[in-house]
Computed example of a mutant assay.
Amino acid sequence: MNFLRRSLIMIMVTGALSLGTTLIANAQMSYGVKVAAGAACQSDLLRIADNCDAVFSPTFGLVGKYQFTDGFALKSGLEYQLKGRSYTEENIDMSEKLQYLSLPVKAEFSAGEKAGLKKGQRVYFAVGPYLSYLLDAELEIDDVYSDLGNDTKNFDAGLGFELGMEFPVFNQKALQIGLNYDMGFVEVYKSAPDLHNKMASISLGFLF
């Protein structure tokens, strides 16, 4: 199983790096880094949240964006994400923390000066699927951790949304500030039906 996990991680990393290398060779490509902080929970399919409290959810990773036209781009990357839920059972506080390696692919629609913004500024909306591989899953009770790997599914998949602003910095570089929401479509646990990952966050991206 460990060999399978390592192999799948290497495939995802290799695929992302190959995509990045191909796109970087084109003049319409920009690439950079992304960090985000937010809250994650788990709930029924297509519901924002129910029956659990949120846990702190950081994200960081690499981003690549290919600009097809002035108002349309395709962007992807490779991101580390922490998701999960927090709840109380028999007056005991519990937190389940799941670490994922995620590969999102989003179509980005944007508008700049034609929308009344200053030169170089853009407002954008991005949407697209993501595929995530589970790196680790733990249950925390009173600072004591136990492994959840046998009860969690190895993959998650869903749809990601992003709304934000892009600002020019340092000549050809750009700063993106966005509001993000991920909705999972795959059940997280083998023994608990109809629990899906949800995450909302604020992100900061720097594109070269």
Rank of each mutant, 00 (worst) to 15 (best):
G205M: 09
T69M: 14
K106Q: 14
M10S: 14
A16Y: 09
Y66V: 01
M94G: 01
Y145A: 05
V63T: 04
G120Q: 01
F56E: 07
F185L: 14
I9K: 13
P58G: 08
A115V: 04
G205L: 02
N26Y: 09
I48A: 08
M94C: 13
L204F: 14
S76T: 15
I202K: 02
E90F: 14
G112P: 09
S76K: 01
A49W: 01
L135I: 14
K106G: 01
R5C: 04
L46H: 15
V105T: 11
G32M: 10
E89S: 14
L78E: 03
K34V: 12
P129L: 08
Y133A: 11
Y100R: 08
K198N: 15
L45S: 06
A39N: 08
F56S: 11
V169K: 06
A40R: 03
A157G: 14
K190G: 06
L4Y: 03
S191P: 01
S95Y: 01
F185V: 05
A39R: 11
V63C: 02
Q121T: 05
S203I: 02
G128Q: 13
N26A: 13
K83L: 11
V13R: 05
L204H: 03
G205W: 04
A107C: 13
V169I: 13
F208W: 03
N150F: 10
N180D: 12
F68A: 12
L23G: 12
Y189D: 02
N150Y: 10
E140F: 04
S146P: 00
C52N: 15
S7C: 05
G160D: 06
V127A: 15
M183P: 00
L179T: 04
K65D: 08
A137H: 09
D53P: 03
P168G: 09
K119R: 11
G128C: 11
A27F: 04
E113L: 03
V105C: 11
L62N: 04
L45V: 05
L23H: 11
L204K: 02
G64M: 06
L62T: 12
K65H: 05
F109M: 14
L204P: 05
S146V: 02
H196S: 04
